[in-house]
Simulated assay, not measured.
Amino acid sequence: MTDAYVALENGQVVTARARAPGRTRGELVFTTAYTGYEESLTDPSYEEQVLTFSYPLIGNYGVRAERFESDRVHPRGVVARELTEDVAEWLTEEGVPAVDHLDTRDLVTSIREQGAMKCGIAVGPDATPEDAKAELAECKGMSEHTDIGAQVSVDENLTHNPDGDGPTVALIDCGAKGSIISSLVERDATVEILPYDATVADVDAVDPDIIFISNGPGDPKNFEEAAALVEEYVGETPLAGICLGQQVIAEALGGETEKMEFGHRGVNQPVQDLRSGKVVMTTQNHGYTVAEPGDLDVTQINVNDDTPEGLESDELDVITRQYHPEANPGPHDTLDFFDDVVELIETAPAANAD
Rank of each mutant, 00 (worst) to 15 (best):
E48G: 10
T159S: 10
E48W: 11
P329T: 07
F212G: 07
P162G: 02
W90L: 02
Q151D: 14
T159A: 08
I345T: 15
V203H: 01
L194Q: 00
P220S: 03
A80Q: 07
V185Q: 02
V123C: 01
E326W: 12
E232N: 04
A252E: 01
A198R: 04
A20W: 05
S110W: 10
E113Q: 14
H332P: 09
K278C: 02
D317H: 14
V206F: 04
D305H: 05
G124Q: 06
L107V: 11
V279C: 07
R112Y: 07
E309Y: 14
R81D: 04
I180Y: 11
G266N: 06
N268R: 09
K140G: 12
A205Y: 06
E66T: 11
V248Q: 02
I121Q: 11
T32S: 12
T109K: 14
Q114L: 13
P331K: 00
A250E: 00
E251H: 01
E89R: 14
A189M: 10
R25Y: 12
V78Q: 02
H74L: 06
D297G: 09
F30D: 11
Y5G: 10
L57E: 11
G95K: 03
D197T: 04
G149D: 05
E27V: 13
E27I: 11
R19Y: 02
D103W: 02
T2L: 00
P21T: 01
P217R: 06
N328G: 02
E93G: 15
S313H: 06
L316A: 04
T31R: 09
A170T: 07
D209A: 10
L229A: 08
D188F: 03
E93M: 11
F262H: 13
